[in-house]
Amino acid sequence: MRRSSLASWLWYLLRISGAALVALALVHLAMMHYAHAPSATGAAFVAARWAHAFWRWFDWALLVLALVHGFGGLYGIVSESMRGVAARLLRALVVAATAVFVALGSAAVAAGAPAAHSGGSTSIAGVLAGLLIALATLSYLAAALAIAVLALRVARRTPIGRWEIPGQWAWGLHRLSGVAILAFLAIHVFDVALAPFAPAAYDATVAAYGIPYLVPMELALVGAVLYHSLNGLRLMLLEALPQRAQRLEAPLFALAIALTLIALVPAALVIALG
């Protein structure tokens, strides 16, 4: 009997959870970014939604699947690219973080609709808003650096190597978007947990989504979710059509990028008008 490898387990896990996430994550995004502006999702909004058992189960399924999928992906990245003590330590950290976030998020949905607006020190909100600003600053700096490196290469006419090939971009963006969504999700589970336990603090955090400095990151996040979902679907489709995959992979990548950009327009309008 053959022993199943970690690589095989993760491969199936990421595809099964990814397929389930397509519907959940896109519906969530539609509610929060198209039907409403992110800054209009205060404690009262959550209370109204969580009054329905359906949305609580929905949010819980999204929570567990997104955390298992996202941290599972991170576990895979650590396993393939690191060796030795550092790798073992990081893997243990990933498993622990998954458990902590699942517990915190589950406690929040279980507690359900927030009571009247009371309690909650707004200093927690300050910390969370600070984390969002730090995440935004990090992504802006990373984007600027990547563009600078690429521009320098092109200007000095040194080859950009593997980045000449579309598949390389599809993969690079898939990994980048996956890790970025996971980083946001970690902060997000904290801030949503404030809604039942400290509604005033929650409202203060949600107000932070209105800060203009954060708007580019919010749009990038929507783009990341859209692209990562579409490209995940693309990978699964190509897997089902192995003999046509080489011909289809580049056009389908272009399609994923085009659809992402098109879908970003209404999201930008909602933020701008909301």
Partner: peptide, 9 residues
């Protein structure tokens, strides 16, 4: 085969 990320380079 499951360690491959289907990049296709």
């Amino acid at each position: 085969v499951h360690a491959c990320h289907s990049v296709g380079n």
